[in-house]
Design a protein around this nucleic acid. Structure first.
Lengths: 155, 155
DNA sequence: AATGAAACTACTGCCGG
DNA sequence: CCGGCAGTAGTTTCATT
């Protein structure tokens, strides 16, 4: 499943991870490669599925969503149908940003966004607690978040 | 703190959230706006801090990192110095992708990436458990993850 | 807010190692 | 197979109206 990614590819991915808007030409100049060569490498990484696309970095707070909460959810009943039903229902809630199926103390981890705490309480009571099969839930309110280079620093 | 974002801006953000590589011209054509008008709106959103940039979507598995683990961390001692020390130390671990300071049962949530489970055990024992002030930890192994439109669907 | 111009960027062939 | 060169189409970016 792994793909051949050499040191030059990693350098490109590192640079793009820092700023995904940079052009192939600018990247190539900085690392002694021509613009088409750099561009073809990026394209190859996309076709290989390593680079799956570019996502927006939005400031939820400035869009009026001041509260982000992580919710660990334990299902009361865990048949295959329960998982499917739960996922179908939870993905239909607009305030849910991310649905993670996990192994451990909880079955799902949700990233939920709300305008403020009263709004979050509404989502929790009316949307989440009424989901099919929901058992225990545990909430963590986000104070601050920092994203690091991650695997590209390790690789 | 909130910024004026009208329905057209939201439509642009929604379209870009679906595919961040689309050009201002293509977006404008699709929604009956000229290319410069669309481009100026995007730029205004960037200057207002609503649109903070673009991030890469990487397939960690294809880069050789097959295991993603979420780790809830409770600190044993929670003075201001403890928080600073912990954050400084944890951000230096290359396998740590995201550091979230949260309120609730745990103090921090970490997103950690490793090549496989033995590799994760190494990170956990040698890197995480030796961090200054670490108390209880709780791990969740990621099985699958789905990102939804989120606030743009709700807004 | 549209138009037009200048610079830049993405993308395609073709050729050399 | 990978990189450089040259060329075209499309995009950004800015000045002007």
């Amino acid at each position: 499943m792994s793909v051949e990614v050499d040191a030059t590819d990693l350098a490109i991915l590192r640079a793009l991870a820092a700023d995904a808007t940079r052009s192939a030409g600018a990247l190539g100049r900085e690392m002694g490669l021509s613009q088409p060569a750099t561009w073809r490498r990026i394209r190859r990484l996309e076709e290989a599925g390593v680079l799956k696309g570019r996502r927006l970095r939005l400031d939820a707070g400035r869009l009026g969503f001041g509260v982000t909460v992580f919710l660990g959810v334990k299902l009361a009943t865990k048949g295959r149908v329960s998982l499917d039903d739960f996922e179908r229902a939870v993905t239909a809630i607009p305030e849910v940003q991310v649905v993670e199926h996990v192994l451990g103390l909880y079955d799902y981890r949700l990233r939920i966004i709300a305008r403020d705490l009263p709004d979050f309480e509404r989502v929790l009571r009316r949307r989440i607690m009424t989901l099919p099969g929901v058992g225990e839930v545990e909430a963590n309110v986000l104070l601050s978040e920092e994203r690091l280079p991650g695997p590209l620093g390790a690789a």
